[in-house]
Design a protein around this nucleic acid. Sequence first.
DNA 1: CTGCATCCCCTCAGATACTG
DNA 2: CAGTATCTGAGGGGATGCAG
Lengths: 130, 130
Amino acid sequence: MSSTPSCNPGFSCGLDATLRVIAGKWKPLIIYFLIQGPNRYGELKRAVRGVSDKMLIQQLKELDSDGIVTRHDYQEVPPRVDYTLTPLGHSLAEALTPLCNWGSDNMAEVARIFAERESWSAGAPGPRPS
Amino acid sequence: MSSTPSCNPGFSCGLDATLRVIAGKWKPLIIYFLIQGPNRYGELKRAVRGVSDKMLIQQLKELDSDGIVTRHDYQEVPPRVDYTLTPLGHSLAEALTPLCNWGSDNMAEVARIFAERESWSAGAPGPRPS
DNA sequence: CTGCATCCCCTCAGATACTG
DNA sequence: CAGTATCTGAGGGGATGCAG
């Protein structure tokens, strides 16, 4: 029955379950862009810059079979396909929001950290080994 | 917000920035367990099931150099080391909460989906997934 | 903790089908 | 030819885990 056990087979906790769904380099981005508007393949590809066709298609396919998005093929001549979030996917996208905000809020900080890390390889005078 | 740069060098959006920090198979779990309580190395290892020593140490080290956690070595015998979240790490952990909740809320759903996907190889008499 | 063997993820480059 | 969506194969590199 649906007694929602505290710790189900396979998942050590809720976060664990979530991670299985959004695992991968692009899925979080894809999901998050999907809720913001663009849903045609081309739009998505432009939004998630740096992703290759293969990856985009692949991830989209996985998200589809995971019940996060729905693929709609208009079967038209200039190919037209769009992807929309399912209710489940929509709620997931919303759960992603705080992460996005965190990144926005701390972007300067994060950028600085990464910049430093790159610079020490270039010979930074950092009194900072450990 | 007033001083929040729209799109900084390298990051296409906030989510992108965040993902660079929590990239990896274990980091989100580690961070989230860290906020839930105490965390000696051993505790952590028990919490994040399936992780190897090498990976745990490695990820912890990265999180440390990313300013997310702080490593404290008591230099005792028996070795005692603990890791605590920095303010930055703490806020990140909080941003992770909705994701954890999402997983908990939809664990049954997710488990079902994954179960079905695995069953195709076992020949389940399922009433057709579609 | 370091080295080594492995595996999967991801990127690159090229191909297909159809229209204006 | 240009544009859209998708697929295929090859290959590198990073991530992961085991043993010394």
